[in-house]
Amino acid sequence: MTRTLRRSGWVLGLAALLAALLLLTKLIQPGFGASGIESLVRAALPFAFATAALAVVVIAGGIDLSVASMMAVASVTAAVLMESAGEAATVPVVLLVLLVGIAMGAINGALVVWTRLPDIVVTLAMLFVWEGVALLILQAPGGAATPWLRQLIVGPFPIPGLPEGATAFLPKSLVVLVFCLALVWLPLRRSRLGLSIYAIGSDPTAAFRSGVAIGPTRIAAYGIAGLLAALGGLSLTLSTGIGEPIPGPYLLAAVAAVVLGGVALTGGRGGLLGPILAVLILRVVRLILTLLSVDPNVTTIIEGTIMAVVVMLGGLLAMRERRA
């Protein structure tokens, strides 16, 4: 049906745009190839997780401004523990960090439910709180990451039986990203909890009438966002090798990618694939600007402008829809 096509049309369009941009990159720099893609995806990893985290909350009709701060907490927790506990404890540390992420998200969600304040106010306050927690754990960038864990996101993903030339274009980081998101999202998307998350974002009244428990669902959505943010923090530590207590520019990039990725800021609509493609698109744009030897600061301006324009267009579209 055309409707189904139209629904996935946005994602297909994003994929086409990404392909075109990659082609453009290749034209600008003929040497751009497997290693270029590898470093591109690796750099995009924290952005992708931040975006996925935000997307889940936005689908549930909320917004989480503390995503970047939660990533910072996860990043420093991982770096500090990995440095002190040694290689043997790596797996428990990773699990612990993920639990911390879920807990942070659930706290955000519980506060939203309990205080009855708008999501945006609660998570703005929690942005400061998590930032402070990260600073308390680690005053300045430091700590370390387990080397073998770091190797998990570096280089191509070898598939036995295939020549290296063929697997070179499949970076490990992409596999990690897809694996983690699929593990969290696919079972969820089909479950009643997943449906409930869409339902409360789309129409809380109708959801209530269909028997959805609004409060717990909201907390669960924030908890999942916390988990994804923790994955983002981990990937940050893995790619830099240290813990970073000051949150990076992930929040705004995530908002832009979520909107560009077809998730309505009013909730209930969209998925994870679109936002992830949008993250990659924004990263490729940055790469192209760098290749064109545009001043990196101008790149920041252009990126900021793209984000602002995307958000403003999103607002205008939402308004038009409301009028119609």
Binding site: E131, G132, V133, L136, Q139
Partner: peptide
Amino acid sequence: PEGARRILFGL
């Protein structure tokens, strides 16, 4: 410490 200050502001 600075971290505690930020937490305080948030709270």
